[in-house]
Write a protein that binds this DNA or RNA. Structure first.
Lengths: 202, 202
DNA sequence: CACGTTCAGCACTGATCGGTGCCGAAAAAG
DNA sequence: CTTTTTCGGCACCGATCAGTGCTGAACGTG
């Protein structure tokens, strides 16, 4: 996308765009889209407002780029979990990753995809809808994976991949809310374990 | 508290305070604390800004009063569920109530206690913290009830009421997030059913 | 009647919102 | 060199934010 293919005429950028985006992500994660002001963002990113606009567009685009970074960073556990050999292991790793990411020491509690913009006024409609699509994409990925497990036999043919996928996603969303409210990693891992007690046997 | 005990000198209030508070609750529920502006609130409540301040204080107090109304209204299922005779029935009714309230036709999707202010800037700190306490109060109430069930024998002595209470609350929170993203009542009731599949036998 | 309160409405405050314009300087490419 | 781009900084934009002051009338009580 933004590969350094251009000839780069002119003064080069004086800050690390990835670093700045990381800081923006952390602030959006902690305070939400509406709760993070441009003034706070430029302080966190360590650059001026002009540089921010030149590099990332406007606040909405900045959030969406921060979300991309969140997806391949703190939320990367979701993709890794899909590569597990059985549905049970997928679900186990997905929830464990959700717990770990939501309670990362020193990082914001919870999930950016949940609390970034769960409900907003009209000004945040695009971001809110984008996050809803983002979350549903995770559910759809689990669904595909669980369908594969039914085909391969590590989920019984009587099981319903639709329900299982939404169930796992619902527990993960709940874990994010709990973490945002101060629940600890140990407490939430116990919840994740409890949630998998009824997983269909192979 | 606000019983009509005062002699009521002067012109009587020209609007129904309960009605107005109901409309404020619905807007906060739909758009969150930061996302609902005073201009939108006065339009929804059908009163002027002056009357709103005279009757409810400021925006923060208005939200907290709307939360009280939410608690005894759309969230009343939580108290009703606690009166069920067994822990299993408590959990079943709690989750079913969460599903119904989060997907009420014509009402805002989700749970005001979750999306009202899950993460905010500094301006919403009080409201955000209050909601976290509110949610944890629900968990604590479930915990007390499940401890009672262990004593009474409808939960096995080996079960952990702490984990069970947080598990039920986590699933309810996840249901709220799912509903906010557009999940239907039927889909979420299936999730609630799945969540209870592993409930400890009496 | 007078008194006290609320009415509707509108202008208004200071602050902050997201977003721009302009500046001269600095640093790269050609 | 010139050209091009970004730099830091700061004033500034119109709009909106939460919250207030003021007005004159309406409507109750004693």
């Amino acid at each position: 996308m933004d590969a350094p293919q251009k000839a780069q005429i002119g003064r080069p950028r004086g800050f690390d765009a990835d670093d700045a985006l990381e800081q923006a992500m952390l602030l959006f994660w902690k305070q939400g889209y509406e709760g993070a002001s441009l003034t706070e963002l430029e302080a966190a990113m360590g650059i001026t407002r002009k540089s921010m606009y030149a590099a990332f567009g406007n606040k909405e685009e900045l959030f969406l780029k921060a979300l991309q970074r969140y997806t391949v960073g703190p939320a990367a556990y979701s993709f890794e979990s899909l590569r597990q050999p059985t549905a049970r292991q997928v679900a186990t790793m997905f929830l464990a990753g959700s717990v770990r990411s939501s309670t990362w020491p020193g990082g914001p509690a919870g999930c950016m995809g949940v609390q970034g913009a769960l409900s907003t006024g009209e000004a945040g409609r695009v971001v809110r809808d984008t996050l809803a699509v983002w979350r549903d994409g995770g559910r759809a990925a689990l669904l595909d994976r669980f369908r594969q497990s039914v085909d391969e036999g590590d989920l019984p043919p009587t099981s319903d991949p639709e329900v299982l996928a939404r169930y796992v996603m619902t527990v993960a969303n709940g874990i994010a809310v709990q973490a945002a409210g101060g629940a600890t990693r140990e407490e939430l891992q116990q919840v994740a374990d409890a949630a998998l007690k009824s997983w269909p046997p192979a």
